[in-house]
């Protein structure tokens, strides 16, 4: 697609706004990492989902939404759960849609259906969720991101869908 055909983002200047308010919290990259490629068809590939939505199973320790530096833990969300078994703990994005239908930010039912129909080969036993408010970019990149990536690899995932809320 050409530059001119790019649709506009709904909320403008997100990068500049966050940087003005929380300088140094965003991670900027100059390079691109080499891609990994699928080794088998999609219909045989096990999918994991990673989300910064703050979605978590009901009854697990709520994400620390009040901590000034952020929360560097993640929750495993069993991929067979139903929406009423999930709740959201976060303060930084609008949950007006998710409060009615959690699939708008954490499409667990749609992914279950795609696995059921054989469009994808299956789902990892758990999905992974954390919150996006993190003021220590090094800890985010070197600890939390690596921890989750290791967990995803261990879960036997062949592919991963990521959604930074």
């Amino acid at each position: 697609m050409t530059e001119t055909s790019k649709p506009n983002q709904l909320r403008l200047e997100v990068w500049n706004t966050v940087n003005e308010r929380y300088p140094g919290s965003m991670i900027s990259k100059e390079d691109f990492v080499p891609l990994s490629f699928l080794t088998k068809p999609l219909s045989e590939s096990k999918l994991s989902f990673v989300s910064t939505s703050g979605v978590q199973p009901v009854g697990t320790m709520p994400f620390d939404t009040v901590h000034p530096i952020g929360d560097y833990t993640y929750r495993e969300v069993p991929s067979n759960l139903k929406p009423h078994e999930l709740e959201i703990h976060q303060l930084k994005y609008p949950t007006v849609g998710a409060n009615q239908d959690i699939n708008v930010i954490f499409p667990i039912e749609r992914l279950q259906e795609l696995a059921q129909e054989g469009v994808i080969g299956g789902l990892t036993d758990n999905f992974y969720s954390f919150i996006g408010y993190n003021m220590d970019p090094d800890k985010l990149e070197q600890k939390l991101a690596e921890d989750i990536a290791d967990a995803v690899v261990k879960s036997g995932a062949d592919i991963a869908l990521l959604c930074p809320a």
């Binding site: 939404t65 009040v66 303060l91 994005y93 949950t95």
Partner: peptide
């Protein structure tokens, strides 16, 4: 202290934040 701040705000009924604690 941080928890109490948000807890009291929630109690006040005037919640300006997008999500849930």
């Amino acid at each position: 202290y941080f928890h109490l701040h948000f807890h009291l705000l929630k109690r006040s009924g005037e919640w300006i934040h997008d999500g849930n604690l």
